[in-house]
Amino acid sequence: MSELTARVREIAKRLLDNQQVDVVFGWEKGTEPFSSTPVFIRRPEEAERLVFDEFCIHNLSTYLLDYRDGSEKIGIFVKGCDSRGVVRLLEDEQFTRERLYIIGIGCPGMKDPVAHALAASGLDGNQDTAGLSAKCRQCVHPNPVLYDELLGVQQEPHLRGERFAEVKQIEAMSTAERYQFFADIFSRCIRCYACRNICVACNCRRCIFEETRPQWVGRETNLADNMMYHVIRTMHVAGRCVECGECERACPVGIPLMLLNRKLIKDVNQLFGPYEAALSLEEGAKPPLSRYRTDDPDNFL
């Protein structure tokens, strides 16, 4: 058992023993060496189920939404991106800081359990198992930005190369090339909404994609409706995406969702910035597109 796993168990047990929290969000081992999965611990003796290893990739902050209407106090283990997810929810007023005890862990970068399962399964698909997961290879903020207690060591960004290199490649395409690129990736969307459901910034109580009166987005799985879905999803998290990469990780058909999100991160920063979402919790702070200023740029209108 690693030292971090031991610390994680010890802290969870302490928080539950002291009744400081009602439930602890962490990870446990699944049925295979590469499966770590989210777990929600309520009894001190169950703290022994917790682990922290290289497959604890899930952003647990999204699960806070399952608890937003309650009053339970929650202990939550967060990596760098997960902690930005917590800030997202606090800034969006979906949760209150008082209900949380946050244990930060400097993140060494994670491997992708699904990619490993897929590679082992014999199913044909996207088997990207080399080293860190695709999402962690893009990571620029591995260290928790908000916590009550901190574990692990300070980490350097895992990104090698330039953050917006892929975005610039797409920007450099001709209109026709770009349309073809988007047509290729969106035509395979199966509209499972995993990218929406796993997203901490997708925290609306009633989602536009569930509206039926009126129905804003058609339910056909065709290029037009799929594009409409993705344009709305991406624009909706513009300036709010915490770059945790969960959407892209969850996508069963390998749509490069973070490429879209990163384009919006780049644009929001250029137009309204300098801005980097959810890097700290400040009283009353709002993302650029959630507030109005008379000097907001409008030359794109």
Binding site: I190, I198, Q215, P252
Partner: peptide, 25 residues
């Protein structure tokens, strides 16, 4: 259900899930 996020991956990849909706354009 605690760790399920209610997306449709399992139902859409499942060879035996058959639920459908009827809609109009």
């Amino acid at each position: 259900a605690a760790k399920c996020m209610n997306c449709g991956i399992c139902t859409y990849l499942c060879p035996g899930c058959y639920c459908f909706d009827i809609q109009v354009k």
